[in-house]
Design a protein around this nucleic acid. Structure first.
Length: 426
DNA sequence: CGGGATTAG
DNA sequence: TTTTCTAATCCCG
């Protein structure tokens, strides 16, 4: 019987590659994509990397240099990235019986493919995605998820591999060299803190981790780290999660482009955020039992710090925008507009469950839920944009002055008719 | 069980 | 002046 192999498919510099699909002039150029509010670099092309641009670099620091270096920046366009990601995932789902989407740009496939055919299978996936979506990927293959991750990292680092690395097909000396050279922090699941704690116990390289006694790892660290160590040895210990689990928490939180200093602006921000959270919850067909609203001052600078928050249990589980908005506005009584300049606010919805699992008794139902306000809002916003209609303060044709900055936004070429790309046939 | 810490992308 | 956002899971009190 052929053992299962794990294929980790990962879109190369995902956001930059998505920008390049509809703007070929960006290909081969140093490109960066910025976080919300055009705050810092969250994705960069290898050309940008080569120029010394670093992940996380604040845009206000990079901007003057970018001009000189010819680095091109784009505001993040999650609608575009999400749509292209969906296309990739739908194709991948059809390529293997077992499929797990791990993030917006990564998926695990598992299939009983013989080792000597793994490379060809991985290549075919790469080719299909290039042809049908126009996105470049690397594929890492291994007998466990952790090794597939490691192989993927290797495929990215070593150009000669052509974007595919089959871990168990590498010469043993090569694998051992990698394992004994790479620090534990390079393994999936081991971050900064954990690698420091491991180092204190004399475990520095991935090879050290693999050689450590599993029972001791479980006792001194956690069962999770023990599983990771087993997986590095080639023993599957982390399940593929093929069932898409419903989330059990939803956060909508944003930094403001300029601080909010008045009750009226905060009322508006909370109204808009609560209604955006409501829309997301409805998209998942879920309802929430608890709402937390929070805001906070900037952690930078030495101004007065203030981070108020409220949490309340809703009278009945709901996704209704009016109920959530009213609940969120309770935060206003805890904010201090005399002193604080708020840099951010957010809504957290918890205790989520499927909307149909808890059909509320009429006794508890919110009267206006039956008037389908949520559905109406959704319909109008889907057709005319999020600012076209809203409850209370949340309908704004023009973005408010504190809305996030997105000065270098590309068109949403696959989700909005008005923003379609045009091609000229010569 | 709630909240903070850690990890990841 | 300016430094992301979201989610899961583990750990501790």
């Amino acid at each position: 019987m052929t053992k299962n192999l794990v294929f980790l498919v990962d879109i190369n510099t995902c956001y930059v590659s998505c920008e390049r699909v509809f703007d070929p002039s960006l290909r081969g150029k140093p490109v960066v994509v910025l976080s919300n509010n055009d705050g810092c670099v969250i994705a960069l092309s290898k050309e940008a990397k080569a120029l010394g641009v670093r992940m996380g670099e604040p845009w206000f620091q990079l901007e003057p240099r970018a001009k000189v270096l010819g680095v091109i920046a784009r505001s993040s366009n999650y609608e575009l990235y999400g749509n292209l990601s969906d296309r990739v995932m739908n194709i991948l789902r059809s390529q293997a019986a077992l499929f797990e989407q791990y993030s917006i740009d990564e998926a695990f496939l598992t299939a009983p493919i013989p080792l000597h055919r793994a490379r060809a299978f991985a290549r075919s996936i790469k080719d299909i995605l290039a042809r049908r979506v126009g996105l470049p990927v690397c594929v890492g293959v291994g007998s466990t998820k952790t090794l597939a991750k490691l192989a993927n990292r290797t495929a990215k680092k070593i150009d000669a591999l052509g974007g595919v690395c089959v871990w168990e097909a590498l010469p043993a000396e090569r694998r051992n060299a990698l394992l004994s050279t790479l620090p534990t922090g390079e393994v999936w699941g081991v971050g900064r803190r954990l690698s420091a704690r491991l180092a204190a116990k004399g475990i520095h390289s991935i090879a050290d981790l693999a050689a450590a006694d599993p029972a001791t790892l479980r006792k001194q660290f956690s069962v999770v780290l023990m599983r990771t160590a087993l997986e590095v040895r080639g023993t599957p210990a982390i399940e593929l999660e093929t069932e898409r689990k419903l989330r059990d928490q939803l956060i909508y939180s944003r930094m403001f482009s300029t601080p909010i200093e008045t009750r009226e602006d905060m009322r508006q921000a909370l109204s808009i955020y609560a209604q955006r959270a409501s829309r997301r919850l409805q998209a998942d067909r879920q309802v929430a039992s608890q709402l937390t609203a929070f805001c906070g001052t900037s952690y930078f600078g030495d101004r007065t710090q203030h981070h108020p928050g409220i949490r309340l249990t809703l009278p009945a589980p709901t996704a209704d925008p009016a109920v959530l908005t009213r609940a969120a506005l309770g935060l206003l009584d805890h904010a201090d507009f005399g002193v604080a300049r708020y840099a951010r606010a957010g809504i957290m919805l918890t205790d989520l469950r499927p909307a149909d699992s808890a059909v509320p008794l009429d006794f508890f139902a919110y009267p206006h839920e039956q008037r389908n306000i949520a559905a109406l809002l959704e319909q109008v916003q889907a057709a005319h944009g999020e600012g076209s209609l809203g409850l209370g303060y949340a309908g704004l044709a023009q973005p408010a002055h504190w809305e996030m900055r997105r000065d270098m936004l590309s068109p949403r070429a696959t989700t909005h008719w008005q923003e379609l790309a045009t091609a000229r046939v010569l």
